[in-house]
Nucleic acid binder design. Structure first.
Lengths: 211, 211
DNA sequence: ATTCTGTATATTGTATACAAAATACTTTAT
DNA sequence: ATAAAGTATTTTGTATACAATATACAGAAT
């Protein structure tokens, strides 16, 4: 109860980062004891974080034999992607018109994305921030939270894809087309393009995974 | 580790049932100590269940002062309903044509719903089963799981509404119209009607809550 | 009476302890 | 050497212990 945030939340963040960094590799077992030792806290908050991560699809929990990092699997990625796509489209459709300043922020992020050469972390971070910024006005808080949480799954896939397939970014042109529709206040077209953006991204990742 | 299922899962189920029965009233505090005593197990698995329930929106977790049952709130219901509606529509759209036997099951459930006079539990159970049966063929497992989980929120509202507003059911005619479209293999119409079913249900519950 | 304040109690978040089960290791037999 | 079987060691799931904070209560001041 020291840092004003429960230890379980700090543990959650830290473990998640290790998964994303590949420090905890897909398929590898995650022992609460060793994490507790490494983070210098007890097993209890660690286990609470692990339980949460397994509910979110980052870890797998086999009864009696603990936790392991979920292996990357094309089917899972397609499934999560389809869900996230539908939810982001819903969020966009039910959002009020974005402020000009937010539109500016979106193009700014896109400029950032275009100028990156090979920083995977930064690319994924900006891609996610672009989506979050797009949906920042969505009045459905629960939906926004859910989308944020669900992003954890595709984020892992995008990261690996960018790193291993050597791709640099996930098409900023799509972003531009979406922004263009939003700017015209044509939410229907924007939603359609957002869905299309997801569909292409999923297909790109999927076919690479199944290679 | 006795019942072949982790205690935290049994605790989860039991606590959830108590919330639904109204045994744990909205707004009331939930003390892990007292639950542990009542269920005859330790606080650890109880807390794991409480943490999960708070992530699912059934309980609220205030840092340092424990858990309480979420109060019923029209906004929350509308938000969850909108999400669930979108996800069920997605599930329906991406499902293969249902087997005749499953269609039969759906009309059978509807007959059951129509014949109920005043059993709230049974009504809610059948309504939920109808939805689950409709989406049983959906190949996106993650989506099905997510829908099942999300149902916990509207279920609480429907239950209270039926009980306190004295309504008997949530319109089996809607179900019939959806089934009719599914039977014609017109998934677009079916999806549209399903969305409409949700919209009307949400509106009915919402205006009652805000009365 | 009502509000404040200090103290007792309860409850939380976290750490540790313990028993059952799983994994790793060693020894023995083939 | 390989395989099997039995034993030691980890690791898990759950229970309990403990310190810090929050709540409840009693008495004093207004």
């Amino acid at each position: 109860m020291l840092g004003r945030k429960p230890l379980r939340d700090q543990a959650y963040q830290e473990i998640l980062e290790r998964v994303h960094r590949g420090d905890l590799a897909p398929g590898s077992r995650v022992r609460d004891t060793s994490l507790a030792g490494q983070l210098g806290i007890s097993r209890t908050p660690i286990r609470e974080a692990l339980l949460r991560l397994s509910r979110e699809g980052v870890l797998a929990a086999d009864i009696g034999r603990g936790f392991s990092v979920c292996r990357l699997d094309a089917t899972e990625m397609r499934e999560s992607g389809a869900i996230l796509s539908a939810l982001e489209v819903l969020a966009l459709q039910t959002s009020p018109d974005p402020t000009p300043e937010r539109l500016g922020r979106l193009t700014e992020i896109d400029r950032g994305l275009a100028s990156i050469r090979s920083d995977v972390d930064r690319t994924v971070g900006l891609e996610e921030e672009w989506h979050r910024t797009l949906l920042l006005g969505c009045p459905n808080h629960r939906l926004r939270d859910m989308i944020d949480n669900l992003w954890q799954v595709p984020r892992r896939y995008i990261r690996v894809y960018l790193r291993e397939a050597g791709r640099v970014s996930l098409s900023t042109q799509h972003h531009a087309r979406i922004i263009e529709a939003v700017r015209r206040n044509d939410r229907t077209a924007a939603a359609e393009r957002l869905a299309n953006h997801w569909e292409r991204g999923i297909e790109e990742l999927g076919s690479w995974l199944e290679r």
